[in-house]
């Protein structure tokens, strides 16, 4: 799938400026950038939530799904987990129950959770439900927009492990958006760096982290807080 020359303008302000990005089948592309760099707007454009110019080649727009940042806001508080997950299903009514159970087990949640309400779940469980709901539409491309930013570190690890296992099991292509370079580095095959609406650098993860070419990427890398002193 290729995003070609995509731009988003709000009045006179260009939020996303002529972005071209390829997402290979079964690969995870990480998108990093600071707040206001346009990475979330790009995600919303690709999913059709905001109007854009340019084109998206190689993907059925109805088969692009998104998981949102805040699992406390992205689930309807008045719908059960089962009803939320069933929302995007395109299977006959009779097969629904089994499909919901299959999706919940895919994200390592027990089927008994289907009758619960979001308020009874932890943040990490909610985010798994949101992933299961997106997978229900059998997406070609899954967009994960800062999906671990609202979670605690102890939970973040489990969600990142889930993302990696889904890629292996389902050969799912993914656009993984985060402001956290360490997280993006951990899950992505390719990393794209966005700054002021434009892509400044794209490359295989290890290569981009080890020897960045753009100045902005370098300053971004230098600012990452490190717990362990970097090897000289």
């Amino acid at each position: 799938m290729i995003i070609k020359n995509l731009s988003v303008r709000f009045g006179g302000f260009t939020a996303v400026d002529d972005v071209t990005l390829e997402i290979p089948a079964g690969g995870i592309v990480g998108l990093v950038g600071e707040s206001g760099s346009g990475k979330s707007t790009l995600a919303r454009a690709v999913t059709g939530l905001v109007p854009y110019t340019g084109e998206i080649v190689g993907a059925d727009p109805r088969r692009i799904q998104m998981v949102f940042q805040d699992p406390y806001a992205s689930l309807d508080p008045r719908m059960t987990v089962g009803a939320s997950v069933a929302e995007g299903l395109r299977v006959p009514r009779a097969a629904r129950r089994a499909e919901v159970e299959r999706l919940l087990s895919l994200v390592s949640l027990p089927a008994s959770l289907a009758g619960r309400y979001p308020r009874e779940l932890s943040g990490g469980q909610r985010q798994r439900v949101a992933v299961a709901r997106a997978l229900g539409a059998r997406p070609d491309l899954l967009i994960a927009d800062e999906i671990t930013s609202a979670l605690d570190v102890s939970v973040q690890g489990a969600v990142l492990n889930l993302i990696r296992s889904l890629r292996e099991e389902l050969r799912l292509s993914m656009l993984f958006i985060s402001h956290n370079l360490a997280v993006v580095r951990y899950v992505s095959d390719t990393v794209a760096v966005m700054h002021r609406g434009a892509l400044v650098e794209t490359g295989p993860t290890e290569q981009l982290v080890a020897s960045p070419t753009a100045d902005y990427t370098r300053s971004l890398l230098a600012a990452v807080p490190r717990l362990r002193p970097t090897a000289p």
């Binding site: 999913t47 939530l49 998104m66 992205s74 689930l75 309807d76 929302e87 997106a134 229900g136």
Partner: peptide, 8 residues
């Protein structure tokens, strides 16, 4: 959650 429903 309404955005999510629209995407679905």
């Amino acid at each position: 959650y309404v955005s999510a429903a629209r995407v679905l």
